[in-house]
Amino acid sequence: DWEDIVRFLRKLFELGEEVVIGDWHNHHREEIKRLIEWLEKHF
């Protein structure tokens, strides 16, 4: 279910905002944000 995936990604992203998950999070933050925005537009 796409909504569950979007919710999971958003939760992960919000957690990442508070607890910076090292370089991985910083590197992928923009991609995650773009992916969430893309999914919201399409689903």
Rank of each mutant, 00 (worst) to 15 (best):
34 R>D: 04
4 D>Y: 13
29 R>F: 13
19 V>N: 05
9 L>W: 02
36 I>S: 02
6 V>W: 15
37 E>Y: 07
42 H>W: 15
7 R>D: 11
36 I>G: 02
40 E>G: 06
40 E>A: 13
7 R>V: 02
41 K>V: 11
39 L>H: 01
29 R>L: 14
3 E>G: 09
32 I>Q: 02
42 H>D: 03
24 W>L: 12
6 V>H: 06
25 H>Q: 12
15 L>D: 02
19 V>L: 14
32 I>D: 00
3 E>I: 08
34 R>T: 05
3 E>Y: 09
8 F>T: 03
38 W>C: 04
27 H>N: 08
41 K>A: 07
23 D>E: 03
27 H>A: 11
30 E>G: 06
36 I>D: 01
1 D>V: 14
33 K>G: 06
34 R>F: 08
31 E>I: 15
8 F>Q: 06
43 F>E: 02
8 F>V: 05
20 V>L: 13
7 R>Y: 03
31 E>V: 13
2 W>D: 01
26 N>M: 07
24 W>I: 10
39 L>I: 06
12 L>Y: 03
5 I>T: 01
15 L>K: 02
37 E>Q: 08
26 N>C: 12
5 I>P: 00
27 H>Y: 06
29 R>Y: 14
37 E>I: 09
20 V>G: 10
28 H>P: 06
34 R>P: 02
27 H>V: 08
28 H>C: 03
23 D>V: 03
15 L>R: 03
6 V>I: 14
39 L>P: 00
10 R>N: 13
11 K>C: 07
7 R>M: 05
7 R>T: 02
40 E>Q: 12
3 E>W: 14
1 D>H: 12
1 D>M: 13
9 L>M: 02
3 E>C: 09
35 L>M: 04
11 K>N: 08
19 V>S: 09
4 D>E: 09
36 I>M: 07
43 F>S: 02
24 W>T: 06
35 L>T: 03
35 L>Q: 01
6 V>S: 02
8 F>P: 00
35 L>W: 06
19 V>F: 04
2 W>M: 01
38 W>H: 03
22 G>S: 03
40 E>H: 13
22 G>N: 08
5 I>N: 00
10 R>H: 10
19 V>P: 03
43 F>Y: 07
